[in-house]
Design a binder for these strands. Structure first.
Lengths: 224, 224, 224, 224
DNA sequence: CATGAATGAGACTTCATTCAT
DNA sequence: TATGAATGAAGTCTCATTCAT
């Protein structure tokens, strides 16, 4: 941080509050934008609403981000890259079984994605075709890194002889997680849905994925 | 239009051409609307564009559907409700194992939803919060019927002793299918994605779901 | 009537009904137009509604009246000129006191104007400025003849020494009558109004107009 | 705008010109709306025309009034509610004869309603049936308060023994006044009408109403 | 830096009128 | 003569963006 770090208790007096507010502006604007983009979608979110939610005026928003589209890209960068980097760090440092790593990653993801950030997927899926420039950006910045992370964890299981080498697994793991986020942020926000994503459900899904659905006579302790 | 038009019965007299055009209009409009809604989203699709793609003027669209929202509902009914009804008919008439039924349903779905119809999910997920009236409509017309269909097929497997009674299974089956459609109609329409949903992939996913990911010593012929 | 007068019982058979309907079309269209113009106003009445109320199609309306404006003029001609001519005939044939004539004319007017015809005033007052061509037409066709009628009746009273020669009297007589029609066809159609125009009220108003409001000691039997 | 603008206090700094313009906008918009509503009617007046007449753009109008209907209500409140309130104040403070009060109220009304404001009646009468929400609003905001005012003045005359207790008097007083406004703003705007409402005419009408039309031998000084 | 009044292109929807049948 | 499908201009209202203060 800079020497004028606002968390410093020394009475730097007049100007500190202004400075702090000014320094915090971008984050406040990104938070407001994230919440509204997720709630209403990109095109349906009005610039003025973002500004109002961040406590500034319409004009001020344009001082920080030159257009609504740039604002959205900033939101994507700020919220998803960190999440993936954190997952990669966990995977690199992990030393247990592939199954344990998979469970850890999935639970971490569920916890971290519980907030509005998980709703970005909805926005991208919904509106990327109207803003084609976003597609490559999102693929490079989010999709491929996330895929590398999952594929790596599974490959570790295959290498250790834990997992069968089945190709669609990453797709399936990602699908169930993201799909759930999508539901929560769309229909689930309007009507009451039957399922909620809690830790138990993640375990059930992993258990199902790992052991399969078929009941076979000679399985022992397959179900948790 | 021409006198030798084979679909025109001899001497059908008054208004034959007009009638024939009128009769075809609803389907033409629904097709145009489906394509544009999937490509651009509901809110971003202009009524006039739909009309133009169907080869008529703006006003004509409103002769057939009183509002853009009603047009969208008609698209959903025409493309999804019918698909689900067809699946229910298959399930009711089916007499084999639950696994076979599950495979049959999923393959049927993949084939029928291969076109733009599968993109409707994207539209709903993206914009249902901006058009709350659509939420209940979609839940009643699509989500719950589809869930009944899947749950019924799985219950048959449980009743016959084929399947373990695991609650999140329907959710998982639906997730992988719909999620794939979402990807195809969003990012997949902009950049080249690694996976394509063909019949082989559906079987692989089902195999994975049925037998599980873990490699176990005493499994014999787990993969079909 | 023509020899093919449909009321003739002789079995003129096939063709009579068609002829009758065709002959009646203009009147049916005028009736429908009158009702709707009064209810909704000229601009707010849709051509198709007029046609539907007359039991024909939109196109047929245009066979009889080349535009909505011409249709309106026909309605005015058909409904108001007759009423005024009838009043003039009454006045010409009348031989009693001026007060009796005034009462007779006002009661006749009230009875005849009870239907939708009295609503034409509302339409003209409301929309004549948007259709300036109507102004002179209406002045010549309706306003001046009606004024001649009233002024004539009052002049008779002045000539006979019954009435004081006060200029604004015709205006006042017309005002109270037409204003009441206006209220009935506007606010009165939406909410319940305190006053209703019945024969008693007409007499009260005439009494008031004739004798005045002030209570004077030496009047004998002035109030009914 | 200029530094020497007298209405601008010295050093009022930030936003003075803008502020001053903004403060004046509502009145400018109401004036423009009143003129156009009276001239063309409510439905036939385009929002953009109102804005243009007030010297602003279409969007600006919607910054001040959220819909055309609300704009109209604001016009009614500004022009009629205030007029009636003023009349009530006059009546409450008045201490002369009932006849004097009646004359004062009617003259005040004529003077104040001489402009476009009196044309609002025309708009309401013409279009209230197409905008039913306006009916109750107008009844509550204008009709009933005006009626209370007139009825109160007449009741004072009855209580003091000046007037005969005749029920339809308020209706007649209102009719002649409003009907005259209606004529002025409809036919009268297109062709030249014989009568104009000046102070003399008001007195003539009141004289007529108070003393009656009949010539009676024993009246002394009936006409003022 | 910050404001918020102002803009104007563009969206959905209506409806008088035409014209092929 | 009668129909009604089709048109397209015109209306209300929204909102991203600008700019004077």
């Amino acid at each position: 941080m800079s020497p004028s770090d606002p968390s410093s208790p020394a009475g730097d007096g007049h100007g500190a509050t202004r400075r702090r507010r000014k320094d915090a502006r971008p984050q406040e604007l990104l938070d407001a934008a994230l919440a509204l983009f997720v709630e209403k979608g990109f095109a349906a979110t009005r610039s003025e609403e973002v500004a109002a939610r961040a406590g500034v005026s319409k004009g001020t928003l344009y001082l920080y981000y030159p257009s609504k589209e740039e604002l959205f890209k900033a939101v994507v960068r700020r919220n998803l890259s960190e999440l993936i980097a954190e997952g990669s760090a966990i995977a690199d440092a992990f030393e247990g079984s592939a199954e344990s790593l998979l469970r850890l990653l999935m639970h971490t993801w569920r916890e971290r994605a519980a907030g509005a950030a998980s709703g970005i997927h909805k926005v991208v899926i919904a509106e990327v075709r109207s803003f084609p420039e976003l597609a490559q950006f999102y693929l490079d910045e989010v999709v491929l890194p996330a895929q590398r992370l999952i594929v790596g964890a599974l490959q570790r299981g295959i290498d250790r002889g834990e997992f069968r080498p089945l190709e669609p697994v990453p797709h399936l793991l990602i699908a169930q997680t993201i799909f759930h986020s999508l539901c929560e942020h769309s229909l689930g926000a309007c009507v009451s849905l039957p399922v909620t994503m809690d830790a138990t459900l993640v375990d059930l899904q992993l258990d199902l994925l790992l052991h399969g659905l078929l009941r076979r006579p000679n399985r022992a302790g397959a179900a948790k």
